[in-house]
Design a protein around this nucleic acid. Structure first.
Length: 717
DNA sequence: TTCGAAATATGAAGGCAGAC
DNA sequence: GTCTGCCTTCATATTTCGAA
């Protein structure tokens, strides 16, 4: 574990033209504590105990001692990464901080963490580079004392201690920021700790508030050499005792306003302080791009295309980045869904039920097959190898909402896979924990689809408002105080996008991993046009809230018209006020399935998820043009390859199931095939299989694309 | 309903490479 | 010497499921 006693060089470089440019160089004294990772796990308790070790190191004296008073400095600030053992929001960490403040008689102790994805910006990381260089030039022996040892035994420990000494010597020669690095062996065994009462502390935190108030347990430092030296050196109370309850009460009174780890702002501190940012501060997740993107993906379940432009401004990512994020997000969901489906299927087998993974792995090895992967994959291979009967096909969800239980508690008893299957059927995003999924299905069952992501909708509205407010304030503020303050890094690398003064947030986001992408800021965002920038996203939000305000933008994609005529396809239909009357339904888009297509009249019969057994008829051509019905986005994605597939020579993959393979010796699964002939009139193609040259198969394209049984393998061009 | 084991997901640490 | 980004490994957190 490495600590960096931070020292910031700030130098005014330029102050012409009402512009203040400071150069910033973050450096400091590096101090490393070596631990044997196998024997000494990095716990919260260890981290704070090792602080005492640093306190008595003469080399670090100048870091801790206030030169004016000659005593211990009274304000401690820790800047940490966002790990579980460090997160300032963790109650355990906060209790330790309260204790440190009490023991060392500090006036304040602050712990700040970097937001997710930003820990690499922690200056302490730069020390690693120095260490790496030193370590890579030397070879360390893990068998320095004993040639033979078992992991975890005495010999192993002695070997590791020996190696730690070698590493210590090696690192002691390094320099960081012109100062030599301090290296020392960590505390080692728990016997050396000053406080080893983590168990009691955790027990205390596990109690409810009432019982915490009644708790009278005390903690005491262990009177070892370390503690004696600290008390002597820094003039502390050798026989101090602390009380869990008191520490906890300090937290309740003084810390509760800092519960949220801070966000990253790109306004300079001097300006930030003058800005009234309450609106922003109170909006959780504002300005962390990935958070915003997750919200919008949940809400705009028919795709983000309509809102891309305003979304760019909202989360400060380019359109490509947003699209890539969306794709990745959905792909992740898709793969995890298929994985869960596989697991649900194979877990029906006795092999899965009666064995744990280790047993299955040894079984696999016995039978001479690979034992890699997760549990159900082993079962799958074993069943095949042992010629067992595969488990029965999973029961499919039939789309009948009313057959689901009425209560969420009942619904929550379904497996995650089942819940996700239901949500997928109804075109609702199936991300999140099981509880969230169950509530979503419950809302669906109650016929309140528009309420499914209600919280997320409000969150987005809040973020939009906060953004507007911030921009407005910033502009107003600029009018009264036009001084521009910039900070530049002393060692700035201008070639890569970074925190620089022109585009401060270019790489400050999870999705901004690709270089060279630039976000075009709308030409003139003025106070007057501010509302316009966010108009598209606000309008689209209204669609999901259920208020109709989008009058135009009928969406006609020629190739998709055919798809709407396909039985089984999922579509959206808009119910306007007139059609609904006072039936109690809200206006808005409703999801349904096509049951029938009448060729002569070109009409389709649709059954809606919210109203079972009632059939509505739509005229395809007319109603699509009038923007009354449209294809569900999920289907749109799967049939975007339609035209590609209808070309001779294209390589595709087909899912063949048991019943289609009755007269053959093939097993069900994906097969690669080439398109041989295309029948444009009936929308069918002839496939020949690359594995079996004598087999030609004729299938209709659209239905198979929609059900996911057919997919493009390689593009022709 | 609670608890614990097993399985899986997550993300921090460690390592490496490369740019200037 | 400073800074960034990517990959692998490992520890920990979360989730699920079955038993009591």
């Amino acid at each position: 574990m490495t600590h960096l006693f931070l020292n910031t060089d700030l130098a005014l470089e330029d102050n012409t033209d009402n512009k203040y440019i400071y150069s910033v160089r973050r450096t400091g004294k590096a101090s490393t504590l070596l631990s044997l990772s196998y024997f000494e796990p990095q716990t919260v308790q260890r981290v704070y105990n090792e602080l005492f070790l640093l306190l008595i190191n003469p080399a670090l004296d100048e870091c801790f001692r206030n030169p004016k008073t000659g005593r211990l400095k009274e304000h401690f600030v820790f800047i940490v990464d966002n790990g579980p053992s460090e997160a300032p929001s963790s109650p355990l960490v906060r209790m330790w901080l309260a204790r440190i403040a009490r023991v060392l008689k500090l006036k304040s102790v602050t712990q700040k963490s970097f937001a997710e994805y930003h820990s690499k910006r922690n200056p302490v990381e730069r020390v690693h580079a120095v260490h790496n260089r030193a370590l890579s030039n030397e070879v360390f022996s893990s068998k320095g004392i004993h040639k033979h040892f078992e992991i975890g035994d005495e010999y192993h420990l002695e070997n590791m201690e020996h190696m730690a000494k070698e590493v210590e010597q090696c690192l002691a020669t390094t320099q960081y920021g012109g100062k030599s690095c301090v290296v020392q062996r960590g505390l080692g065994k728990q016997d050396n700790f000053v406080f080893d009462d983590e168990l009691q502390l955790v027990t205390f935190l596990g109690k409810n508030e009432c019982q915490k108030n009644l708790d009278d347990n005390l903690y005491k430092p262990i009177q070892n050499d370390l503690w004696k030296e600290i008390t002597m050196l820094w003039d502390l109370d050798e026989n101090m005792t602390g009380s869990y309850r008191n520490d906890y009460q300090i937290l309740q009174n003084a810390f509760h306003e800092e519960a949220d780890p801070g966000e990253i702002h790109y306004l300079p501190l001097e300006k930030m302080e003058k800005l009234d940012t309450d609106v922003v501060d109170e909006t959780p997740g504002a300005f962390l791009p990935s958070k915003i993107l997750e919200l919008v993906i949940k809400v705009f379940r028919h795709g983000l295309d309509q809102v891309l432009s305003s979304l760019c401004v909202l989360c400060w990512c380019s359109e490509e980045e947003i699209k890539r994020f969306e794709d990745e997000f959905r792909n992740k969901l898709d793969t995890s869904f298929t994985k869960e489906k596989e697991r649900a299927y194979w877990s029906q087998d006795d092999l899965y039920k009666k064995n744990d993974k280790a047993k299955l792995q040894s079984l696999c090895k016995k039978n001479g097959i690979s034992s890699d992967g997760i549990k159900h994959e082993c079962v799958k291979r074993l069943v095949k190898k042992l010629n067992r009967n595969p488990p029965p096909v999973l029961e499919k969800y039939d789309g009948k909402l009313f057959s689901l239980p009425n209560y969420v508690t009942e619904i929550a008893k379904f497996s995650v896979y089942k819940l996700r299957e239901i949500l997928r059927f109804h075109n609702i995003l199936d991300c999140g924990t099981k509880d969230e999924l169950a509530i979503r299905v419950g809302t669906l069952r109650a016929g309140r689809t528009h309420l499914v992501f209600q919280n997320e909708i409000h969150a987005i509205q809040d973020i939009i408002n906060a953004t507007k407010t911030l921009i407005r304030r910033q502009k107003e503020h600029h009018l009264t105080d036009p001084v521009v303050i910039h900070r530049i890094r002393k060692f700035l690398t201008p070639t890569t996008a970074s925190l620089n003064m022109i585009r401060p947030r270019d790489s400050a986001s999870a999705s901004a991993k690709q270089n060279g992408k630039r976000l075009e800021v709308p030409e003139e965002v003025t106070l007057e046009t501010l509302d316009e920038v966010f108009r598209p996203i606000e309008d689209e939000l209204l669609v999901y809230i259920g208020v109709d305000s989008v009058e135009n933008a009928p969406e006609i994609v020629a190739g998709l018209l055919d798809a709407i005529r396909t039985v089984g396809v999922r579509i959206l239909a808009r119910w306007s006020k007139e059609e609904i009357g006072d039936s109690g339904w809200k206006t808005g888009w409703y999801v349904g399935s096509v049951l029938k297509h009448n060729k002569e009249r070109d009409t389709i019969e649709v059954e809606f998820d919210t109203e079972a057994n009632v059939i509505y008829t739509y005229k395809v051509d007319e109603d699509v043009k009038a923007n009354k019905i449209r294809l569900a986005q999920s289907t749109k994605r799967s049939i975007q390859d339609y035209e590609e597939v209808c070309q001779v020579g294209v390589v595709v993959e087909v899912m063949l199931e048991e019943d289609e393979l009755e007269d053959t010796d093939w097993t069900s699964g994906w097969y690669t095939a080439e398109v041989q002939a295309v029948d444009y009139d009936d929308g069918e193609v002839d496939l020949f299989f690359l594995d079996k040259l004598d087999f030609v198969y004729n299938i209709p394209v659209l239905p198979n694309l929609i059900t996911g049984k057919l997919r493009l393998k390689e593009k022709l061009f």
